[in-house]
Design a protein around this nucleic acid. Structure first.
Lengths: 194, 194
DNA sequence: GTCTATAGTGCGATAGAC
DNA sequence: GTCTATCGCACTATAGAC
């Protein structure tokens, strides 16, 4: 038997999610999370920069899926088509089986401002790297930033809708719908046919 | 003479901004800020829920200006026209005289992730109340949320541009420009003239 | 792994304004 | 008398330094 069980990081993440859901974020100490994962408090802080970060450790893969969608879009695609492509790509990360898990996670995060703050920072960082990727495709700068911000907004709104009770449509479908609503908003009929 | 000087809150805000700018956010303790303002650390935390909040205490007026712009827009205005109206309204809060102050504040906030996090949370809250105000105007829900999010995005981008070194155009002008870029993005020529 | 500074909270006491 | 802003002190948890 090993000196310590492997997978401490994963156990810490699971323990934190459970405890936050049961007792609330404030009422849960880092020591409690560590104890449930069978490690010391010190180990918790070696894995995660702060207490909030334990809930966001998996977000790199998510960001990469988003980014890959931008890079894999056909070269001639217009900025908003690139966005659509990226949204499709990231949706593969959230198959319907993950919907209930995502609901639990969402509830925990949105129950405490400190966790929402961290989520918003992550999403802002994502928008930043998306903008860089857009520029690398040759999209000039006002468009690159605005397209990236819009992509994140559409994802956030669609994701929220995906989690709504009773909702059964897939995330891709909802993303498409929201993206359509955004273009409809900025393109009233009077502008299409002046 | 009174037992304590009035205006402790304002002194704390000014002291915090100076110290954060001079020494950095992490290197400044709440006790230092309090000392410079002539109060105790306990008083600091009675005025502000946490150390970050001292930099964002003035943001209610800003949010109100934004909100008033939504409410004062003509009843028949389309969602994006309401957004334009709100952007004009909030720009009155940032006359050119405030540009240098805003630059200093912006530099402090963007020098530390913890402060950016708080800024993002405030802006998300703003988008939320804007959406509520839009709904009160009768704008239905996908449009209300998307218009509000877009309004905040346009403001953020325009504000960043307003602060750029050498930039001399007014915030209203820049907001109009960015809003135009957003509509251009979501309305490529092929859609306008199919 | 231990030790320490700082953030942030709870509560009683105090002093002036009304 | 009440109300409000402050102080002063004890305390826990986070987070980082050693």
């Amino acid at each position: 038997m090993a000196r310590w069980e492997p997978g401490a990081r994963g156990r810490l993440r699971a323990a934190a999610l459970e405890l936050f859901a049961d007792q609330g974020y404030d009422e849960t100490t880092a020591a409690q999370i560590a104890a449930r994962a069978g490690v010391t408090e010190r180990t918790f802080f070696r894995h995660f920069d702060d207490k909030r970060e334990v809930l966001f450790a998996g977000s790199e893969d998510f960001a990469r899926a988003f980014l890959d969608g931008v890079r894999d879009a056909p070269p001639e695609a217009a900025p908003l088509d690139v966005v659509a492509h990226a949204l499709t790509s990231v949706a593969t990360f959230f198959p319907d089986e993950r919907r209930d898990d995502s609901r639990g996670r969402w509830a925990v995060i949105h129950a405490h401002p400190a966790l929402r703050e961290r989520e918003l920072l992550k999403l802002a960082g994502l928008a930043g790297v998306l903008a860089t990727a857009m520029r690398e495709r040759g999209v000039p700068d006002p468009a690159a930033v605005l397209a990236s911000e819009s992509a994140v907004t559409v994802f956030r709104v669609a994701f929220g809708r995906w989690l709504a009770v009773g909702e059964e449509r897939s995330l891709v479908d909802l993303e498409r719908e929201v993206l359509g609503e955004l273009t409809a908003l900025t393109t009233p009929a009077s502008q299409v046919v002046p």
